[in-house]
Amino acid sequence: MHGDMAMLLLADSRLPAGGHAHSGGAEEAVRVGAITGPEDLARFLRGRLATAGVVTAALAAAACELGADPAQERWRRLDAEADARISSPAQRDASRTQGRLLVRTTRRIWPSEALDSLAAAVPDGAHHPVALGAAAAAAGCEPRQAALAAAYTSVTAPATAAVRLLGLDPVLVHRLLADLAPALNDAAHEACVIQADDWSSLPAHAAPALDLLAEQHLRTEVRLFVS
């Protein structure tokens, strides 16, 4: 199938779906001094991947599986599972905004019942990982490929933001990303262990500092990124 190519397109930061304007908490972490250079950034990315990254990968894998045989009621239930895993309202809003833009874009690239039924089931925007999984299904990906794309974008967005905000050496930051390869594979593996009919036990790793950063970001007057 064409899953590999589709996975690359979905993971590419140039996918025109609004992802470039989200920093995944990195902008606020830079502002409050929690990220000041490559060492902090490496720890930020590692922690983000092990928490939000694993959760987003698992939801994307589940959505990809559901996308093979979509039903509006099931989309709403999976979206509610995402809701229960994101306690910060700021992060829920950012996730739904990204999900809405992703569905808008990918419906034109890969017209499909999976994306049409998701858009109809959650018209104000499904959570980003659910939208990503649905798009992956529409594009012919396997759940594992959806999980990889989700985990990958969970760290590339903040890494790119840190490069722009702190003027870090982009080659060094790409080396940090390359160092995450084993953790990325583990995250995708963990995401796919759960059976499709048991969403309740999907990973739900919390990152309390990310929640606080997301809420603080909304109260910060000068912001370059949406989240």
């Binding site: 025109p16 609004g18 470039h20 920093s23 722009r164 370059l224 990124f225």
Partner: peptide, 18 residues
């Protein structure tokens, strides 16, 4: 208002989704 993540040209040319 749309935020552009440090890249105003991206938001009007390469990634117009927002």
């Amino acid at each position: 208002a749309v935020q552009t993540g440090c890249c105003p040209h991206t938001a009007i040319r390469d990634d117009i989704a927002a």
